[in-house]
Design a protein around this nucleic acid. Structure first.
Lengths: 109, 109
DNA sequence: ACCGGTACATAGTAACGCTGAATAGCTGAG
DNA sequence: CTCAGCTATTCAGCGTTACTATGTACCGGT
């Protein structure tokens, strides 16, 4: 998709990752793979890891180091209470924006 | 709403403004007022003007200076062909993202 | 003369995602 | 054993975007 999607992801990618983690705890590499699977083909690896560091620093997730069968140990992230609260706010904000955009698309101005 | 909305607007505000303009040509001050009306209460004037300059520089809109009854002359913007094409892509990108987010919200992971 | 509403502009800042590269562990093919 | 290839994480530098804060300017009413 390109430039437009890149800009739209600012602010939403964070929510997307938190939503994934709220489903089940997982780690960066798998998140990246999942995103590519869903069609976010040009999301860079580095982007996801940077995001994970950020939400960890903000105290939205807990981390546990888990050895991997193949390759270096994984950092498995899970959403904590603060993260769940943040995610709830995210969905509210998203709904707010999505509603207004949908209204605009229907020519409601 | 705050920080989350600010980040989400990156990439969508441009589309919002183009969508407004595709409804009918108008000018910065009115766009700002309309946005505030729709609940985007903390969008700064400067943000809209900067955005308008940007999309003009990119050739997505045409501009016409129109004298105002009260105050300085208005710069009335209207979407041109290139802008319409860009707006179409915007809606596609938006749909792509909205679909995936909606799926995530339903716990589809 | 002054003030409030209309209207536009801009320099500086912070946040976020991308680019590109580096590091490191493990496994299987040759 | 060695090297390619997959797994897994990290980081510096960059471009784009919206916000803050401020400034300019025109007008009508008091």
């Amino acid at each position: 998709m390109g430039r437009q999607l890149t800009e739209m992801l600012k602010g939403t990618l964070e929510g997307i990752v938190l939503a994934i983690l709220s489903g089940r705890p997982t780690y960066g590499y798998e998140i990246t793979a999942w995103l590519r699977d869903q069609g976010f083909s040009d999301i860079a690896e580095g982007t996801v890891y940077a995001l994970l560091v950020r939400i960890e620093r903000r105290g939205l997730v807990d981390v546990e180091k888990v050895p991997s069968e193949k390759g270096p140990p994984r950092k498995v992230y899970s959403v904590n209470d603060q993260g769940r609260k943040y995610l709830e706010e995210f969905w509210e904000t998203w709904s707010f924006l999505a509603e207004r955009l949908e209204r605009l698309r229907e020519g409601g101005n």
